[in-house]
């Protein structure tokens, strides 16, 4: 009793450091890139936009990987699907054919990206979730390879060479062609995604998938059909990642199957682990560190993959818990 009271009171001693770090990360993203843009450093705004898009994808992956223990090695597929959900309607609206999907409307693009991603996640997830462990890792990767080869073979949309998105998604009152507007739209979506994940993982639903990660057999014994819960989480994650892809497509204005390459999925996983899997701000912090590091190293050497790879290995070997894990242990040391 005494023990629980003492930990209880130490928690109440102030705002937890992890919450502060979460807030700090999100506020920094709201303030710094626009300021740099205002200072004439437009390059940094483009870096930040890509960063925020990938952060959304990392947040979506964290929902299933960090909280559900589902190691998806194929999440880049959803980025590709989302991006093509913008590229294909724009292509047809510009060049004709396929009137059914031809559209410049941003709402249509978003709807298509989310719906197709969710459907892809539902079908592949229903099969993948029958497996466990390394089999799950490999089957999710196999499905993303299927998506990869599907887009490669679609000659109409450029196949291997990719597709140029001639005009950004159109929303009433917002011009996504304007870099700053696009950035804030992406940032708004990121906030919504982080909030959604926060609400989800702390709900009854979230407790079930977290419980299933810890001990699946026990959750089943308690009477939960964990398969359905996991599949639901998998579909939500896929849809969210599809949305990130639609935004990324608007940002890059050039999309290609290369976005779905398995190494891209590996990078997303790295972002989550680097930031701290199973923490709210971890994937965002991971995406920031990943992209900033990438840009800095690129600046110094064309061989930037070498230090980057070394860092990846060292992170896995020695930096367990990631950035947010470090924040948490700092907090524990502070509070005694």
């Amino acid at each position: 009793m005494a023990v629980s009271r003492s930990t209880g009171s130490s928690r109440q001693a102030g705002i937890p450091l992890t919450a502060l770090a979460t807030l700090g990360v999100l506020v920094a993203l709201a303030v710094i890139p626009p300021l740099l843009q205002a200072a004439g450093q437009e390059f940094y705004l483009t870096v930040a936009t890509r960063l925020v898009c990938l952060a959304i994808a990392a947040v979506s992956l964290n929902l299933i990987l960090g909280y559900g223990g589902m190691v998806s090695f194929g999440h880049a597929a959803y980025i590709g699907i989302g991006a093509y959900a913008v590229g294909i309607p724009v292509h047809h609206e510009t060049y004709g054919d396929w009137d059914l999907v031809a559209s410049y409307s941003g709402f249509f693009h978003i709807l298509l990206a989310v719906a197709v991603s969710a459907l892809f996640a539902l079908v592949t997830g229903a099969l993948s979730l029958r497996t466990k462990g390394v089999y799950f890792i490999m089957i999710t990767m196999a499905f993303s390879q299927m998506a990869f080869f599907l887009f490669v073979s679609m000659e109409t949309y450029g196949g291997d060479d990719g597709l140029v998105i001639d005009t950004p998604s159109e929303f009433p009152g917002v011009d996504l062609g304007d870099p700053l507007s696009l950035y804030f739209v992406c940032y708004g979506v990121l906030l919504a995604a982080v909030y959604l994940v926060h609400r989800l993982v702390n709900s009854r639903f979230g407790m079930v998938i977290r419980g299933a990660m810890g001990n699946d057999a026990r959750m089943k014994a308690v009477g939960f059909n964990t398969y359905v819960y996991r599949l639901t989480a998998y579909v939500i994650s896929g849809a969210m990642c599809g949305l990130a892809g639609a935004l990324l497509g608007n940002f890059t204005t050039f999309i290609s199957p290369e976005m779905i390459d398995w190494t891209r999925s590996g990078e997303l996983m790295f972002m989550v682990i680097l930031g701290g899997a199973g923490t709210l701000a971890g994937p965002v912090a991971g995406a920031i560190s990943f992209i900033v590091l990438e840009e800095v190293l690129k600046h110094f050497t064309i061989y930037w993959h070498l230090p980057f790879g070394v860092l990846l290995v060292l992170t896995v070997l020695f930096f367990r818990g990631g950035i947010m894990g470090m924040v948490r242990s700092l907090e524990e040391r502070w509070r005694g």
Binding site: G266, M269, L312
Partner: peptide, 30 residues
């Protein structure tokens, strides 16, 4: 490197050996 991974989970294996691929590819480039 590899022997430090035996006690780890598959996710760590995938990430660390993915890092090794980046290292080897760049070394081959050099």
């Amino acid at each position: 490197v590899i022997r430090h991974l035996y006690t780890r989970n598959h996710l760590d294996h995938v990430l660390a050996t993915f890092g090794l691929i980046l290292i080897f590819d760049t070394l081959a480039h050099l």
